[in-house]
Design a protein around this nucleic acid. Sequence first.
RNA 1: GGUAACGUGACCGAGUGGCUAGGUAGAGGUCUGCAAAACCUCCUACAGCGGUUCGAAUCCGCUCGUUACCUCCA
Length: 511
Amino acid sequence: MSLTLYNTLTRQKAPFEPVNPPQVGLYLCGPTVYNDAHLGNARGPIVFDVLTRYLRHLGYQVRYVRNITDVGHLESDADTGEDKMEKAARAKKLEPMQVAQHYTNSYRQAMAALGCLPPDIEPQASGHITEQIALIQEIMGRGLAYEANGSVYFDVPKYNAEGGLYGRLSGRVVEELLAGTRTELAGQDEKRSPADFALWKKASPQHIMRWPSPFGEAPGEGFPGWHLECSAMSRKYLGAEFDIHGGGLDLMFPHHECEIAQNEGSDTPGPGARFWLHNNMLTVNGQKMSKSLGNFITLPQLFGGDTGALSQAYSPMTLRFFFLQAHYRSPIDLSDDALQAARKGYRKLINGLRLLDKLVGEGEEVNSEEAKTEEVKGPPTPAQQLRNLAAKPFAFLDDDLNTPRAVAAVFDLLKRLNTLAAKPEELAEVGPAALAAAAAAYRTLVLDVLGLRDEPRANTEDLLGLTLSFYQEAKATKAYDKVDQIRAALKEQGIVIKDTKTGVEWAYSEE
RNA sequence: GGUAACGUGACCGAGUGGCUAGGUAGAGGUCUGCAAAACCUCCUACAGCGGUUCGAAUCCGCUCGUUACCUCCA
């Protein structure tokens, strides 16, 4: 059984084979850093984190690239047409890059809390202006882009006339797009066709974020079009043909469609990625998240319980597990009930890890030869049944990263392990090898592949206080062996107890 | 309006022609000083209406509902 993935480009599942095994190049469209990331923004990174983790588990060497968009996208709904980055900067009286840095930091913090491994390369659009200009020049060199008043546009009709397939990713027909275009928008007259999109925009005098460019009669300053960076940076770090490009369904058109056109229009023609993967969207209480509906929730707000739509705070791991319970290509609806259910399920899995410690001694060796499944005719032995249970989650992950079925299968495995823990006679029938293998699989699945980890809820100070109360009690009853025992145990933790006139205190050992 | 998805039990969600996940909640039981956990049992659904089929939640059509996108532009 090998990994298959659903490719939006072909609209079907296909076996995944890397261009250059064992290397795998994966690019994910990252955040535009002008605001705190919201719940919907977390789904893609979590999905592709699991994919990255699973690919690594399968033995691939993954180069995971996730960009930071810090050159500003334009407000889609603003009548002013003001740049998002600049708008946020102006509102807070900050340098645009200060805004970008602030939200980049915030984003990284949230991603780390969600258990998402940091990307191997996290390129910033502002740091790749040169590459973007070079790509534009490649496209212009092939006659697929033209200048107009200092801006550069991609010539979609010409591209398609020369065999290009603009629209193939999103299943759109250019003629239909033209019919539905809002022609009243200003600036359309610069474009030869309404379907064309900007590769480079000339900056107006008040536009803050601007870079020199060779475009225009008197080369001036401007900024890159918003589809360009992903093409330029994915090519730079992963090559003209790489393995997987991910993003939210909302980016399929026009963003990814334009990226493909740009890649095809370059000097190294090709769609870029072989596999295009899209995660579906999130709704809150059955509706899309929007500020006007009052159900817009940022990640810091969720973790802090500062939301109007939910009754309480939910931890990063709760959110992660919640997302894993749905398939990435299905829409998912978030609500109090759903998150509370997810929290309990998540804790059940984590508690399972402690069960393993009890069942399998630390450091107990797994005999890999012995642990291999053997084909034997007749009814499966208890050991084989356990191994089958442990193998199922991986099989579901192979099927287009079906995390909900994988999670369900992990629960089945946990149930079996729980039963074994309660029934020594059945445990003996299974034998240590199969048990160790199953325990290792459980650990790998929960921690390494699904990326869940323990979120300690206990408060260290309170636990210490409890210990100190036992200490005082022992002392009061002159149970000095108990007293010494507590002192010794705490010392192991680097903590010393101090008896003072006013009471018992603790401090970190200075040794 | 166009395009693409989706609508599953109290809730969240898998499944995609017959075998009908999993989590949470609820009911009962085992265990238990109390409690928790765990285990066992129960609650068995596929928006509506037609059609295809020996058989449909699963295929087709229509209706209703939800969601996403419909390009960048001062």
